[in-house]
Design a protein around this nucleic acid. Sequence first.
DNA 1: GCTCTATTTAGAGTTTTTCTAATCTGTTGA
DNA 2: TCAACAGATTAGAAAAACTCTAAATAGAGC
Lengths: 137, 137
Amino acid sequence: MEARPFTPMVQKLRTAGLRPTRQRMSLAKLLFDAGDRHVTAEQLHHEATAARVRVSLATVYNTLHQFTTAGLLREVVVQPGRSYFDTNTTDHHHFFIEANGHLEDIPGDSVAWARLPEPPKGTRIERVEVIVRVTRD
Amino acid sequence: MEARPFTPMVQKLRTAGLRPTRQRMSLAKLLFDAGDRHVTAEQLHHEATAARVRVSLATVYNTLHQFTTAGLLREVVVQPGRSYFDTNTTDHHHFFIEANGHLEDIPGDSVAWARLPEPPKGTRIERVEVIVRVTRD
DNA sequence: GCTCTATTTAGAGTTTTTCTAATCTGTTGA
DNA sequence: TCAACAGATTAGAAAAACTCTAAATAGAGC
């Protein structure tokens, strides 16, 4: 089915220790071939369906989590009861427009600290996440 | 039932436009009489039950949301599928220990910015939230 | 106490996500 | 090329967290 077995996407999946299956390839294309995106599982599933790709919702969830574990995606939690997956895995932050549930990237270098706290004893900082919640005025 | 109708807690609820009912009083006591806390609805419900206070889970949810709307609590979203409610409503941030789902306050003045981004056109900053995710080392 | 309205409640419903167990599909090696 | 096997996918059930509904209950003012 896959004509070019050494395509960058195949590499990307193999490097992550994931077999380049039809479903994973399709989802990866939807996710990574369109610039920086923030999608929910449900959204991605709809997109796949719209693109005539037959994937179950369970596989969408599996794939999103596998990609996240592999460092291909970042999970963003800003709203109760819903996870976003961000294709931008570089150091950056987010605006969150509560009104419509829209996320927008803040480049990493747009935020700089003058002071940061020491982590609690016995722990080390994994990541500092900044969420700027904004409202329409 | 309530012997002292002008107790600070009654005041607090009245000021928020909420009748000081038995359930709200009990939950408020559990929440506010023990210093800064981060609780989930489920946790608070268990605590109430343990304290021999009969409250339904629906009322716990209602109350937490009413308190949040009234500015008596702050909702903190750091984990998919679970909301924490923080009794500290002053300007501050959080450490999140992923391993055990534990939240810890970072005083507001422990964080200072050297640079913050402009909000997107047509929006204004509501709140800047910093979550420092830490791991045990 | 009576009345009115806010509040509480049990239980059903929703939404998002995970699990299960059966089926299918890449991959490897003969 | 193909058999075998482990990994991947799937439908559907289940779980988890929360919300809704409609009926019962309880504060508050008279």
